[in-house]
């Protein structure tokens, strides 16, 4: 079976990655998988208020994920939704192991992710952009984080689903089979998983295969992230 946009199963969409896109932020980045575009700005480490949230042992990491109202076909009402609150939470959990939070007790690092165009896998784009933006902001990090979504389309495992593929339905043995979506985030150096979600049905064997596939794609993405950071314009000037 061929994919709708002619990609091979292990291929992700064209990636666009840039840093320093928000001038007021301490660090910022744009990361796009095809039409899924995320802009992330990082502020801090800075003083945390209210004081009862302060932790004398480590820094707090706060992520905000939100879709711009124009990013989806049907206008999205601005403000947090059940979905965006959940994604903010999983983003925090995906990024936390990569950051040296012990270095800044009682402070906070704010990560604001805004999706300006959405075509599935937006949380992966947001995590990739956040990792770039954090490095760009000079936050001490153990390693970079890269994320990609793996899906089960019919009987095949594919990397980086689009919206079209996500909504694709296969009629098999009279039963309607929906696409399974598995977003995965990997730490670039220790090769550990920091995010693994699963939406749909998949067998245990196939899940392990999907993770292997995701790992391969994530390593490619971390190379792209590395390249993006290194061609920072300050040095060229």
């Amino acid at each position: 079976m061929k994919r709708p946009d002619g990609r091979s199963n292990e291929e992700f969409r064209t990636v666009e990655a840039r840093v320093d896109v928000v001038s007021r932020a301490d660090g910022s980045a744009l990361f796009a998988f095809g039409n899924s575009k995320a802009i992330v700005s990082v502020y801090g480490p800075r003083q945390l208020y209210p004081q009862h949230l302060q932790n004398p042992e480590r820094c707090l990491l706060r992520c905000y994920y939100d879709l711009a109202s124009f990013s989806v076909p049907e206008r999205k009402r601005p403000g947090p939704t059940r979905r965006s609150i959940e994604i903010s939470y999983v983003m925090t959990k995906a990024l936390e192991p990569a950051i040296k939070l012990e270095a800044f007790p009682n402070s906070v690092i704010d990560v604001y992710a805004l999706i300006i165009d959405s075509d599935a896998s937006t949380r992966c784009a947001a995590i990739n952009a956040a990792s770039l933006a954090l490095a760009n902001a000079g936050v001490p990090m153990k390693e970079l984080v890269s994320a990609v979504s793996v899906g089960k389309l019919g009987n095949e495992l594919v990397v980086d689903l689009t919206k079209e593929e996500e909504d694709f339905k296969v009629i098999k043995e009279g039963e309607e089979q929906k696409t399974t979506d598995i977003p995965i985030a990997f730490l670039s150096r220790s090769k550990k998983i920091s995010l693994l979600q699963l939406d749909g049905k998949i067998s245990a064997e196939e899940l392990f295969k999907a993770i292997e596939l995701g790992k391969k794609a994530c390593l490619k993405i971390s190379k792209i992230q590395e390249r993006t950071l290194k061609k920072i314009k300050n040095i060229k000037k």
Binding site: P140, K142, L144, L187, Q225, E226, K230
Partner: peptide
Amino acid sequence: REIVVPGE
């Protein structure tokens, strides 16, 4: 100049 990224 040798530029490095976290984890390198």
